[in-house]
Structures are given as structure tokens and as C-alpha cells.
Nucleic acid binder design. Sequence first.
DNA 1: GTATAGATTTAGGCGCGCTTAATTTAGAGT
DNA 2: ACTCTAAATTAAGCGCGCCTAAATCTATAC
Lengths: 236, 236
Amino acid sequence: MSANRKSSGFSRSTEDYLKAIYELEAEGRPAQTSAIAEALAVAPPSVSGMVKRLSESGLLQHAPYRGVQLTPSGKRAALKMVRRHRILETYLTTKLGYDWDSVHDEAERLEHAVSDQLIERMAMALGYPRFDPHGAPIPTKDGLMEEQDDLVSLTDVPVGSMAELRMVSDRDPDLLRFVASLGLRVGAVFEVVGHQPFKGPTTIRVVGADAREKDAVVGYELAASLSCLVLEGEVG
Amino acid sequence: MSANRKSSGFSRSTEDYLKAIYELEAEGRPAQTSAIAEALAVAPPSVSGMVKRLSESGLLQHAPYRGVQLTPSGKRAALKMVRRHRILETYLTTKLGYDWDSVHDEAERLEHAVSDQLIERMAMALGYPRFDPHGAPIPTKDGLMEEQDDLVSLTDVPVGSMAELRMVSDRDPDLLRFVASLGLRVGAVFEVVGHQPFKGPTTIRVVGADAREKDAVVGYELAASLSCLVLEGEVG
DNA sequence: GTATAGATTTAGGCGCGCTTAATTTAGAGT
DNA sequence: ACTCTAAATTAAGCGCGCCTAAATCTATAC
């Protein structure tokens, strides 16, 4: 009889590793030791050790010196954590008045402590939302997640197009606060005025809530992390 | 930089020990090693080890072979956990439809993961409740807790008196379900029909929601764990 | 006053997840 | 083909919190 049994049956660390590996795979990158280490803020040898344990548990496959891949059961567990995280973020924002820049850390801790029952009750109270406050799709209980294949990064939205902000990473609170300060939230509509070359900034014209327009300049790195839906061809 | 920093700054185990010791002290019993061990379902030597660490951290005083006492800072930390637990129980019951018999375990896990901010937001959403669903008083943010000195155990309510159920331990879900099945909840009013001697059962007549009356027989152990307010002298 | 039962502490050890230091491997460049 | 670098792994060890077994203390009974 060991400690640390929650409803998932995995340790806190195990849950963190699975989620981090899932997110790396989802970004297309192969899940390398160093990438996992960086995501979890641990030293690479810690990852080697944990990867060994996880592959012995059948949660992932390990090609030594090459990388790691989730097995179906590992992916299922990871998606469960993603669902928990996003339901929690949505609940905290909708029901308890959290801002979108402050929910991540809270959800990060709670996702290891909640029961399946609590998550389902929160989901029900929210009307089974499909997206979290940052626009990320919420996997269903059965581990199905909507594709977002029509989204492009702001850097790739053609000049002159109208576009809608659809998704921002929840990782960096400062970034989220800054984005909000530009008048941008998920669903905000704007026109792309121009891209500077050589990874320079993008200028956009945001349609504010009061129908006023406001120009904003967004650095390349930030623009690259904003996922948008291009609305139509050219403007007027 | 070690792991496991939450807003409280203590490890999960530390929080559990402090709360358990607090609850033993609150019941008047001296907090002995074996009592702590039983409360936490660990072996006595584990307690000796942890007590050593906790007293080195200044959270409690240890008189070897005698027992343990919380220091002011230990008591503060313990009351914080009690507040968290009771706010969580109240929130889950009031806002998410949990029954009073199923909230304890969920709160037990969540209390280690929530931030101070989340607890305060929940408390606000609930209108700063003074009691949890089992009738236990909720300490304030500053660690003040209402006295409940007018309550007596059901075994001590005089025959013929009317009384009101005010508090039940949240520990045992089966007990709580059974109590509910008798028509008893916090605030329920009943008449004590009789006590059998030699630790025999107590018979009560519960005033139901539909104003019908229902007799119920309650074993001694259970009766001892029901805290009641005696309403007036004799009936009729 | 002493024997003894029961509680407590010490001793020794384990698993998890982390670290740093040393070693091995993969893969790119010449 | 060989060298060199960056990434990954192995080696060794630590802290926490748990365990069992053994030793020790307290307190009660006689």
C-alpha cells in the first residue's frame, strides 16, 4: 500500500510527464529528453530516469538516444490531464472571476487533485464547453479533441485581411496580460495592416468593443504564438 | 529549489500532520504518537520521524514519550487547513451538488492544492459561510473559530427534550448516509423519546420536512457522535 | 520496590524523484 | 573515415516519508 493514489492512479510527476510529452508531440516536435526536461524544469537525467519507469509501465515507448512516444494508454492518460486542466481553467474563469492570465498556475495544481466526478460536475455546470478561456479545445471524457486545422499564426495572416483571434498559449501570464491590454481576447476581430520583414513586428487594427479601432504593434515572437482564423479575402 | 511548493509552503504530509494534531488537541485528547498514527493511517515510527522534523521547524513542541503540542505557528497553519477543508466542503455541496457524505474525500485532496486566493473567492461566492455542511464552524482567514460550547452529544440530551442536530463528523460517509436516511440533517429538530441504559440505543422522534413524525433508533456510538442543541425543557 | 505491558523511539532500509559528475552515443562537418 | 560536439544515459547520492524489527522508556499492578 503506497501513498499518492488519486482517481487517476498515477503520481503527480507521472501526470506531469505524460502531459508534457503529449504537448510536445501535439506541436509536432519529437519528444526529446532535453525538451521534456525544459518543459518540466528538471535536469535531463531526471527525465531519463522517469522515462525508464514510464516505459516499463507501458505508458510510452522509448527509443534510446532518439526520443519517446506515448502509447495509446499514455495518450489516454495525457488527454485526461489536458481535459482536467482546461475544464478547470474554464470553471475558474467563468464561475470564480479569475482572469485568463491567472488561471494556469491554479489549474496546474488542481488538475492533480480533482476527481473525475468533480471534473464532470464542473463540465456540466459550464454546459460542456468546447474551448477553454485561451481558445484551446477541451478533450471529451472519451479523449476526443477537436482539430483546429484552419488556424494560422498571426505572422501568416495576409496583409489587408480581417482575422479573428482564436487561441493563445496559457503559459505566460505576462504575455496574456499584454495581449489583453491590446484589446485582444479570444474572438476579437482585427485587420492586419502590415508585417515588417526580417522577423519584424506586425501591425494590426483591432475592432474594439465600442466599435472604435485601435492600432497595435506586435513583435514577431508574440505574433507567432497567436493562432488566428482568417475571415475573408481583402478588405473594402 | 525543491519541489512541492504550494502557497502554504508546507508539504502535503506536513499539512496532514498539523491538521490531525490540531483535531486531536481540539477534542481535548493529548496528541500522542499512536493517536496521530491512527488518524493518518501510518505506523507509529513514521510519526516519531515526522514529529522530529516538525518540531525542528518550530511547528510543534515535543515532550519525548509524552506527546506533542502545536506552537502558535503550527496552530495557525493547521487552522488554515481546517478553513480550506470546510470552505471546500461547503462549496462542493452548495455549488456543485455534492451530498454531505461524499465531500470529505474530495476536500481532503483539494485542500493541499488550492491557493489562498481560490479559497477566498469560494468563500466570497458562498457569502462567507460560518458553518460547513456538517455543521462544523469555519475558521476565518485570521484563524478565529466560533466556539460551540452549547452543544451536547445526543446521549446527553434529557429524555422528553426537543433538540436540534447541529454537527456530525464528516469522516465516515456510511455514517452520514445512515444519518440522512433517518431524516436527520443539520438543523433537523427531534424529540428524545428515551435512552436505553448500558450504552444502549437512543430513540428519537424526528420532525420531517412534511411535518410528519418518524421514530428512529440510534445506537450509542452513533448517538455519541451527534452534537445537538437542546431546545427547551419538557415537551407538552 | 520491582516486574511487566504498552507506548515510543531508534536503527536500518526502501521507493520516488530529484541532483551533479562522468560516460556513452548519434550525427554533422571535414 | 574520423573527429568533435551536443544530447542522452549511467553512476552515485540526497531528502522525504514510509516501513519493520529492535531497543528503550513510562506507568501501572502487584
